[in-house]
């Protein structure tokens, strides 16, 4: 099965992180990503720019409406994601728990909708 692992964290707090700590975090992310590529679980993944760069788009009555910022103001923001292949939810939870960001923020594990299932 495929799962989307969404990494949420408080980006204001994250921005305050010391250079050295951030460097260590990025190195941990690299190690983690390499490990799930090697195990065959990795399908994709990216880090996202902060929500100050985001734009929300709606189409109403055929007109495109845009607003500055994310769809909802929340305490934690989506900061990145991995798309993985796992045998079941237990394996997906195990992988999510190894994401370095899980120790700071939280990871939402969502199964991907499968057609013809």
């Amino acid at each position: 099965m495929q799962y989307l692992l969404m990494i949420y964290l408080n980006e204001v707090e994250y921005a305050k992180m010391e250079k050295e700590a951030e460097g260590k975090m990025l190195a941990e992310y690299q190690t983690f990503t390499q490990s799930i590529i090697a195990s065959g679980n990795y399908k994709g993944g990216d880090r996202l720019q902060p929500t100050t760069t985001s734009t929300t788009v709606r189409v109403r009555d055929g007109k495109i409406l845009t607003t500055d910022g994310p769809f909802a103001e929340t305490r934690e923001q989506l900061g990145g994601y991995y798309m993985i292949e796992a045998n079941n939810l237990d394996e997906a939870i195990g992988i999510a728990a190894r994401i370095p960001g899980a120790r700071l923020g939280s990871i939402e594990v969502r199964p991907v909708w499968q057609y013809n299932h």
Binding site: Y3, L89, D90, P111
Partner: peptide, 10 residues
């Protein structure tokens, strides 16, 4: 079914 909770003893 949809989230793939395994039917097994951990």
């Amino acid at each position: 079914r949809l989230a793939g909770i395994p039917y097994e003893v951990p």
